[in-house]
């Protein structure tokens, strides 16, 4: 069947007709969209009370999203196809000069690879978020996201509105919507596509664990979360093959002394103490 051209599907010759035409478009669904209210998400994770949801969205391949979340929020990323790649930057929403510090995130836990229990640290000695669950195990904190220069040499195009957008191009837009500029984008991390360091330092592509994995975080401070769903820079495929990324967030509690992870290591215990100290002083 041949669909008529968009122009032929609309009668918009008067204001009244244009308004009727616009309103007739509501209530439709697309493969990638936010779900409002969040409880109406068609993909509520099992064991999550839909009424506790504060964010539900499917991010398009080559798309981006961003949200400000309260301390204690749980954030779950799902990769339904095995081809999502979630490039993340986190900020303290109250003081965005406090932001993800990838070097500290690898150095302080003495571990380069992200996984359950790993803290995502700021440069201020505090935990922005903790990885609570991870069924993928394929992540990367070395390569960051793609730049325009990288995608131009790899795909011939990097425009954020084009078919092969760079991650940085999308994160610049997401950051700008919160008053942040290019200098506010630190190195990012990415979920669902793994990279490993070989003995000689070579960065080896590991790729996806497969369809149907997820990662869950808990926000340890009020967070500004920026996400770009773009091809990992080391993805060896010549085509830009990215799947949808599902995001859900719901109300919960930040890590406290009663949680086993609080004192799992001496570095973690002091990081959580610093985080709680900040939260208490600010009345959070």
């Amino acid at each position: 069947m041949t669909l008529s051209a968009p122009r032929e599907q609309h009668t918009t010759n008067t204001v009244l007709n244009a308004r009727t035409d616009a309103r007739a478009q509501g209530g439709q669904r697309s493969e990638w969209m936010p779900y409002l209210p969040a409880a109406s998400s068609p993909f509520v994770p099992t064991d999550v009370d839909p009424t506790a949801l504060v964010w539900a969205e499917t991010v398009a391949p080559g798309g981006y999203t961003h949200k400000v979340l309260t301390r204690g929020s749980r954030i779950r990323f799902d990769d339904p196809t095995g081809d999502a790649c979630a490039h993340l930057v986190l900020y303290n929403a109250l003081e965005p000069t406090e932001r993800l510090n990838v070097a500290d995130t690898q150095k302080i836990p003495w571990q380069a690879y992200l996984g359950a229990g790993h803290p995502l640290l700021s440069g201020d000695g505090r935990v922005l978020a903790t990885v609570l669950a991870d069924t993928s195990g394929r992540h990367d904190a070395f390569c960051g996201t793609s730049t325009d220069a990288w995608n131009e040499q790899k795909y011939g195009d990097s425009r954020p509105e084009g078919p092969t957008p760079s991650g940085r191009g999308l994160l610049v837009k997401a950051a700008a919507k919160h008053g942040l500029g290019r200098r506010d984008l630190p190195p990012s991390i990415s979920l669902f596509q793994g990279v490993r360091v070989e003995t000689d330092g070579q960065l080896a592509w590991q790729g996806s664990f497969g369809a149907g994995t997820h990662v869950e975080l808990v926000a340890e401070l009020p967070l500004l979360v920026l996400v770009a769903n773009v091809a990992h820079p080391l993805d060896p495929r010549p085509d830009y093959q990215v799947g949808p990324l599902r995001v859900h967030a719901w109300r919960g509690a930040a890590t406290g002394p009663a949680d086993p992870r609080f004192a799992a290591t001496p570095e973690l215990e002091r990081a959580y103490l610093n985080t709680i100290d900040y939260a208490e002083a600010r009345g959070l």
Binding site: V102, C143, R182, P187
Partner: peptide
């Protein structure tokens, strides 16, 4: 234009090596 600055991930990605 100091908004353009050193980037660890870009340095590593382009040479595909961590050192």
């Amino acid at each position: 234009d100091p908004e353009e600055r050193y980037s660890v991930p870009d340095t590593l990605t382009w040479q595909q090596n961590a050192y």
